[in-house]
Design a protein around this nucleic acid. Structure first.
Lengths: 262, 262
DNA sequence: AAGGATTGTCTCTTACAAGAGACGCATGTA
DNA sequence: TACATGCGTCTCTTGTAAGAGACAATCCTT
């Protein structure tokens, strides 16, 4: 999101002769609002997506008229609108796996007390589609809709299972291999992890996104061999081997129930 | 929705010299998918929104790349995508009233056994934003996201409370006054209903959308005097006066808890 | 095998929207 | 009272995307 379209804009964002398509701008606006997670003034929005003010006003007006955006109470701020909510509900209705996966995740976090998540690939990125916080005193962060580089997560390894090396390389940028703490993963190690995860049918990673948690993930299949999503639990890194194994067993059972052909 | 933009297209949809804006087409596509409620082939989609095939292919590709749409399992059908779901969740997160209203509606239908709904104005139309089916043997239809003419509903009368005559007339077309069974409401009666509903703080309609149900609605305020939503119960038309009164009392209590300044 | 219908891709033209920028109106602050 | 900053609206130009249509490749139906 840092950039939008990776064009010139060397230093001064000038890029003299290049007009953006309206639809592109709209998609950028939506994505920008998704990252800010709050209503924002139209002027700031224009700056945020690096679009001319006049254009932004025009587009926002269209989107507000259509109900995809709404003017926030204040008066001159915009955020997502009801229409997007309705379309989102349509998506859920048409997607058994998501609908049942959400329930399963909610149930799982209540049952185990751990933070539980449903994850999917979203245009080449790992996305937390639904999450339910555990009952632990410290809150393990995980906003729904958050997108994270695939190599940082256990789920990422499962979601890529079955793809060949070329496909994997295409989905993983060099930046993605750099962990939050600065360490850099070796691509070959990552690919090996993926292969292993594909065979064992689960994946555990420790201390990747942060030093305190461990991530247990299992695949959910939409067809034999096709990983459509993953369910995972985020637990303290010092969780015992035994409990970890128990939780993975639990996860596998639940994910099996969700899968179509797996 | 029947038409999209009310331009010429007298008989043969020819309308020789007029190009549609891409964004407009996209909005029509989304709206079309919302009405069909199912994945659809791109060719049919083009026909459905009355757009050239080549244009439709281009737009759909953009939208699929962006994740707003997804190719359905078959291969050449499209429907809403994960991104829309994520944006929709963002909307819910940013909207206390909707979030709490949904819970309240779910609770209410469990408590009363009746079908319960949360309704809002959506670009001038009455929209069922969330509904929870009752426990009655016969299922009272009410899909989330369904849009219905304002005069057909009790909620519609409440949502327009506070608007002056001109504003009301602007929101209600002549067609809207014709009930499903063919009867036609008088505009003056409708406006009188609205005024009355505004004063009493609730509204009951009987046998408007169908002959078997009665609709009990109360307003939810986002600020003193500003009706942001309504909560309503859909009950059999022969529900006793007494029970009706009880239910309205219950509704009012719940809606009061939701309201910000009412 | 021939015929019609549909699907995905491509090319080219021109109508039109993206964008630059000016304007007036509110603010806020020296 | 001046000056700056941000907002919302308008106008005009020109680069470009919407659309018409041709094309090959699949499908079904006969």
């Amino acid at each position: 999101m840092q950039d939008g379209n990776a064009l010139a804009m060397s230093a001064d964002e000038k890029t003299p002769g290049s007009r953006e398509k309206g639809l592109t701008r709209v998609l950028e606006i939506l994505e920008f609002l998704h990252t800010t997670q709050r209503a924002i003034g139209i002027g700031d929005l224009a700056k945020g997506v690096n679009a001319p003010r006049s254009t932004t006003y025009t587009l926002v007006r269209s989107l507000v008229d259509a109900g995809l955006l709404e003017m926030a109470g204040d008066g001159n701020r915009v955020y997502f609108g009801k229409k997007l909510y309705l379309y989102g509900m349509d998506y859920v209705r048409g997607n058994d796996l998501l609908r049942r996966g959400r329930q399963e995740v909610d149930h799982l976090s209540r049952e185990t007390g751990e933070t539980s998540e449903l994850c999917m690939l979203q245009s080449g990125r790992y996305t937390i589609v639904h999450s339910s916080p555990g009952t632990r005193p410290f809150r393990i962060s995980s906003a729904t809709g958050l997108q994270i580089p695939l190599p940082w997560t256990a789920s990422g390894r499962l979601l890529l299972a079955g793809l060949d090396r070329a496909a994997i390389e295409a989905m993983v940028s060099d930046d993605d291999l750099v962990l939050p703490d600065g360490r850099k993963l070796r691509l070959d190690d990552f690919i090996a992890d993926i292969a292993k995860a594909g065979v064992t049918g689960y994946c555990v990673t420790s201390g990747l996104v942060d030093a305190y948690t461990k991530c247990l993930a299992v695949p959910v299949f939409s067809a034999p061999g096709k990983v459509e999503a993953t369910m995972c639990l985020v637990v303290p890194i010092d969780t015992s081997e035994e409990r970890t194994a128990d939780l993975i067993g639990l996860l596998r059972g639940r994910a099996g129930g969700l899968s179509i052909g797996g």
